[in-house]
Structures are given as structure tokens and as C-alpha cells.
Design a protein around this nucleic acid. Structure first.
Lengths: 183, 183, 183, 183
DNA sequence: GATGAATGAGTATTCATTCAT
DNA sequence: CATGAATGAATACTCATTCAT
């Protein structure tokens, strides 16, 4: 792992554990075993680090999403697959999910990013639109639809993560999401 | 308005606008036109101010909820009424809603509060249970149910607030919530 | 006990336990159960409280000293009596002793007070001089002599107070003092 | 002189002149011509600075004591030499002496340090014990003995420093110390 | 690339003191 | 006498950021 990667990794862990504001760059440097100045060599400033981290994680997820799921046309089956894949990888990458959620509601998000950041499904608006046209989905704003599904997934992931519910009941959790948006 | 109230009012506004961490006590004092020390006369420390603010707002909402809605038994009709009342007052009291949401995901929330804070509907778990028993609601954990409904309401309120959707479409937004949890 | 007395009593306890600087007037007010403003009604300011406390305690001790010991002329016997009385009352009034010692080395002592404050024995310089003239004491500055005896007493009192030595060995501690200054 | 040394030097001067509590870190920074934050780069906090200063000075003195005086066995002659060396270097290093004394009676001293700090002579308890065994010293607790000798030295050093007595009379001051503890 | 000393504005909090009631 | 709300300067400490090495 390069020093740059070490910085990003420690930043992610600390941001999620303590919050972005409450994590000092000095702390990140210490945790990743590099000199405090190095952060400012790789990133313009703290904000730059936060933005970079967000973009990298977002891209990682988007890519995962794209390679694992076929989103060229909407079907009842591939939506379910996508949703369940999302929950499963969300549980494995809880830090990533938490950071994205935190970032979305922080003062670090830029206005331009806000809309794009609201959902995993930014790039899937066309996918939802296809579902609406086929009469499978409720006829509503695809942005709002994406946000609702994303927030629900987050709640379910957290619910399982905290041991309050079991992954084996995933089918029943899925029904909530499905019924929310299916017509 | 007493100085104590002025402090709480300014704190709410600034917390929502800039975030809790990014709002200094000095700023709050300045904005409310009191001496910086007065905050610590009324509240043990910044955390005390945040906690007090949260509790006051939570109580205000709970009371509103209790007086406006009959939650002694669950019916399709009174759930709808409650939900719509919630959206309407949420739009009027957007600061309150935003602060509670922010607080819930901040490092200021105490573990004891976390569970209780997760939903407006803490006190309505029995209400949901009644709905399940009557076969109206899906058979699921009422806690998770409360959280899902709350987050959805938040998204809808924000959506309308930001001018992306109209309050006149409230009926269609309601259907999402209803279908999520109704069996 | 009047409120003024309560203030002085609490101040003494807190000053000795935590130090004068580290004791706030607010703390004193709280501990003595009075309003914070009352301290400034009875004493000009914190310094005034400290000075008053010092003078009252000093007077109490001087009076005790005067009534219990005959210091009109120096004898081996009455010096011993005085020394032993001093140790015994010092052990009973440890707070008083500690405060005077603390005060002596603090920034609260005024230059005028410094000399006078250096010893219990300020008023007994004539007594020491008598001892010198009679050839019982070493021929030395009576001020220095007083300070040395006072510091030694303090060490012995503390030593016993802390349970490191027993009051029953007082005779042997006395010999140190005696041999220091007797010719 | 490095900036760290400058900080320690200014701290010593100000602590002795105004007291530890009454000396702000800002004042120390200003006096030593460094940024206020640098103090906290080198020392964990104000307490860390105070502790470091104490340990450095204590070590300096101990070393001086060890190199100048032979304390492997107690004799009347080398005790006198040691005592006189102590007075002379105490007069030259009055700040050091004053700070150690102040520290000893401050709230900064830690319980573990308290015993060790009570005397220059901590490391010389064996030396005193040797003197007792040889019948030269009074048969008493060597800790108390050390404290008594130290306090006496402090009084004498101060006495000379303040111009109340002359270094030329050192022989007569010595007799006080000697008679206190010699049997 | 990498270090960590150095900066100084900013933060939460404390505190002696005042004063209207 | 007595209260405690109110003040604002001062305090210890943090932190993002710079820069010489």
C-alpha cells in the first residue's frame, strides 16, 4: 500500500468512527504512519482529501454495481438481484456506506455534488424510467425514487450490521423496498 | 424572548445551516446578542446546549403529534391523517426536522438516546403493533418500521421544501409510505 | 454561623485543598451555600477575601499563643512548652497552618506583609533577643531564627499529620529545634 | 538555544516571578518569542511543561551534587563541604531552587513525585544512614532529616539572596544545620 | 517524495466582577 | 442583606496549513 493509500484508508476509518469534522489531519497522519505534511502534498487541503475519498468510494461502488448487475433494461428480477447485491456488499463495506451517507449530509458536499450524491442510483435513472414506462414502477420522479430506495437500503444494512435483524430475513426486507415503488 | 430562548433559537438556526461541529459557541452568542459566557451559565457546555435543544424540540413534536392524532388504535384512516399532518408540520418546521435528523447521525447523540431518537414514532410502537395484529401492516419489527417511515417522511419534506415537488402531490407520496408497510 | 463566616470557612477548606488560584469565587459561593455576588458584598474582591482570611487566622493563632504561653522572659522551659503547644495545636488546626504557609509563598502576599508573615514569632522577636542575651540562644538574627523554627514546626506537623511519625516521639523532634538554635 | 530550550527558560523565569498558576502559556510563548502553539508541540499540555522543567532541573542538581561531593561514606568534613557547596550553588541558581520549592508545594506535583521531591537528598538517604550508624547523626528518620536540612538551606539561600545576611557568615549558618541533626 | 518544526487564528470554557431586583 | 443573571477578557489547547530541509 502506498502512503497515499494509507492516508485514504485511515481517513475513511476515522471519519466514520468519529465524524469528519472531529477528525484532525494530524490524527489521520499519525494513524497512517506518515508525516503530517504529506497529506498536503497529495491533497490540496483537508477538503481535497474528503472530496477525493468520496469520489474514489463512489466510483468503486458504481463500478461494482455496473459489473454485477445488468441495468440496460428494467425487470422485476434484475431489480431484486441488484437490491440484494447492494445489501450484501453494503454489509461487507459498511465503512464505505457510512462515509457516503455522512458525506451527503455534511457541509463538505458541494452543491454540484449534492444531487449526484443523493443516490447510488444516479446513473440508473434511465433504468428506473424504463421500469415506469413498462408499468412496473409507480409513475413518480426517478430522483426521489432513487433516494427512497437508497435510504431504505441504508437502514436495512445498519439494522443487520447492528445485529438487530438477520440477513436471512432479507426477503422480507426486500418486500418493503419493492412495495414502496412498484405500482 | 428571554436570553436563554434567544440562545436556543440562534443555535438551532446555525446548527442546521452550518452543522453542529462547525458552529462555534462564540458564533451562537454573537447571533443571539448575548455575552459568550452566558451560554455556559445556562448550559453546562456545548454538548449540554445541543442535548437541551434536542430534547425541547423532540418534546414539542411529540406533544403536537399526541394532541393532533388519535393513536389509541390503528386504522387505515388515522395512519394517513397522521402521516399527512407530519408532512405538513414538517414543512413548516423544517429547521426542527433537519436538526433532529442531523443530531441523530452526529457524535452528540448518546447511546441511550440513539434507540429512542431513531424515530418520531418511538412512543407509537404500540400503535404499529396494533396495526400488525389487525393484519393491516406487514408483520415486521416495529422499530425498523418506524425508522423507515420517518426517513421517508424526511425525504419527502426535503423534496417539497427544495421546490422539487409540490405539496399538492402529497397523495402520491403517501402511497409510497403506505405500500412500504401495509401488507 | 453567619453567611460571612460560612464564606470564610469554605474558602479556607478549598484554598488548602486545591490552592488559592485554583479555587474560584463561584466554587466558594456554592460550597458555602450563598449567592456568588455576596462574596463581593462582604469583601472588595477575591484578594480582599484572601487577605481577610489570612489576617483572621493569624490573629487567632497569635492570641492563642499569647494566652497559652508566657513570653515575657525566655527560659529553656517555656520555650519547650511553647514549641510543644505549637505542634499540638498545629495538628488540630492543620488547615489554618497549611493556609498560612501557602499564603506566605503565594503572589497574594503583599510586600508589607511578607516580613511580618514569615513567622508565628513575629511578635516574639523580643523573646528571642532575651534568650540570646541570656546566652541560651545562638547569637544570630532573630528573624532568621524565627523562620527556621517555624519551618521546622511545619515539617514536623506535616510529618505527624501524614502518619509518617507519631506524636509520641515529640520529644525527639523537639531536640532538633532546640539544638538548631540553642548555643 | 533551540526554541524548546527558550520555552523552558522563559517558563522558569516567569514561574518563579509570578507563580505557576498565574503564568499563562501565552505569556511564556511571547516571552520566549515563539508561537503559542509550539508549547503544545513539544509538551503535551501546561502540566507536561511544568513536569519536564522540574525533572530537568532536578537532574541538573542531582548531577552537580554527585560530581562535586563524595557521598559514599558520611564524615563530618564531607557533610560540611556538601552543605556549603549547596548554599553556594543555590545562590547562583536561585531560580532553580525557587522553582523546585514552589513546585513541591503546588498542585502540579504528583503523589508519586511528592516523596522523591521533598529533598535534594533523596538519593542520599544511605549517606545519612551511614552517619547515624557511625553515631555522628541523631537517630531519626532519614527522610525527615533530609527535608529539614533542605528547608533550612532554602531559608539561608533566600536570606542571603535578599541581602539580609552575608555569605561571609556562612560558617554560622552552617552551625544551625549541623546542630539540628548531629547527635 | 517525505519530514516534522513552526505558525497563529480559532475553540470551548472559566472566572472575577457588576448590577438590577 | 442577598440573589443570580449577565458580562467579556483571559485561558489552555487544537488545528489546518506552510515550508525549510
Amino acid at each position: 500500500m502506498t502512503k497515499k493509500e494509507k492516508i485514504l484508508k485511515s481517513a475513511l476509518t476515522l471519519f466514520v468512527r468519529d465524524g469528519i469534522d472531529a477528525t484532525s489531519t494530524a490524527r489521520i497522519a499519525k494513524e497512517s504512519g506518515v508525516a503530517s505534511g504529506l497529506i498536503f502534498h497529495y491533497f490540496k487541503n483537508k477538503d481535497g482529501l474528503v472530496q477525493t475519498l468520496f469520489l474514489e468510494l463512489k466510483n468503486k461502488i458504481s463500478e461494482l454495481n455496473r459489473t454485477r448487475n445488468d441495468l440496460s433494461c428494467f425487470t422485476r428480477e434484475n431489480f431484486k438481484t441488484m437490491w440484494m447485491n447492494g445489501i450484501r456488499s453494503g454489509i461487507n463495506e459498511i465503512e464505505t456506506i457510512r462515509f457516503i451517507h455522512q458525506f451527503k449530509y455534511s457541509r463538505y458536499i458541494r452543491l454540484e455534488e449534492r444531487e449526484k450524491g443523493k443516490s447510488f442510483f444516479t446513473e440508473q435513472h434511465a433504468y428506473f424510467r424504463d421500469g415506469i414506462q413498462k408499468g412496473i414502477l409507480k409513475n413518480m420522479d426517478v430522483e426521489l425514487m432513487g433516494e427512497i430506495v437508497f435510504e431504505q437500503m441504508l437502514l436495512v444494512i445498519t439494522y443487520i450490521q447492528e445485529g438487530r435483524g438477520s440477513i436471512e430475513d432479507i426477503e422480507s426486507y426486500y418486500k418493503i423496498a419493492r412495495d414502496s415503488i412498484f405500482s
